[in-house]
Amino acid sequence: MKTYVRKLPTLAIAFLLSGCASLSKEECQQGDWYGIGFSDGVQGRSLARFDQHREACAEHGVRVDISTYETGRYKGLRRFCSASNAYRHGELLQRYDGICPAELEQDYLSNYIAGLEGALQQTENHYDELAKEFEDTERLLIYLEEKIARKKVRKDLKEIDAEISNLRERRNMIFRLLKSAELMQSE
């Protein structure tokens, strides 16, 4: 048992290091740099991802083809930067890091902002519903005389209050993302 416990940190480090490589030895040797670039582009990855690939493949003695990678990544970014994707990214409150090609950026940002505004509207509506439910529950608490019922209503109030607090945080996040996107759009 003691031997196993002593080896645990070593095993954990080995496990963590094995997950660090962006590409496997086989992927590096296959060298489908267009496909790898396309995949990274579709996922909205920055060009810094190429450096991770370069490091991973250098460990296996494989050189990478940045030109072919960039061509594939550009094609993938064209898909990533579509209007429908932009709207969905905004709705899901995903951060945008300015990776779309210049000719697509303004359209992407317009749709991304529309998605954020849609998320904000949903959040505001849900917030209003919960605030009303909270007020109604508070009124109910005033009229209840049984201790057991009052205890349950107080518990309900705490749960509603926690959800309202989460919605406030969500709303603040949306405002930060909107401000960032609007600043990018105005540049």
Rank of each mutant, 00 (worst) to 15 (best):
V153Q: 04
T123F: 06
E159W: 00
I160Q: 01
Y108M: 00
A86Y: 00
L77T: 03
I142Y: 12
L93R: 11
S67E: 10
A102C: 04
R176Y: 12
Y112K: 07
E124Y: 12
T123R: 05
R88E: 09
H126D: 09
Q94K: 12
T71F: 06
R139F: 11
E159L: 10
R88D: 07
T123P: 04
Q94F: 11
Y69N: 09
Y69A: 02
E169K: 03
Y127F: 02
E163P: 06
E70F: 15
E91D: 09
Q94W: 15
D161I: 05
R170K: 14
L183T: 07
Y127A: 06
E103S: 03
G115Y: 01
A149E: 15
K75C: 15
Y127G: 10
N85Q: 13
Y96C: 09
E70W: 14
P101K: 10
Y112W: 12
D97W: 03
E159I: 11
R78Q: 12
Q121E: 14
R150M: 12
L140F: 04
A119C: 10
K147V: 13
I164D: 10
Q122S: 10
A181G: 14
L177N: 03
Q122A: 06
K151A: 09
G76A: 10
E70R: 15
G76P: 10
D161K: 05
K152N: 09
Q121R: 04
G118A: 07
Y143N: 15
E91H: 07
A149G: 09
R95V: 04
K155F: 13
L144P: 02
P101H: 13
R139G: 14
Y143G: 14
Q106I: 13
R73D: 05
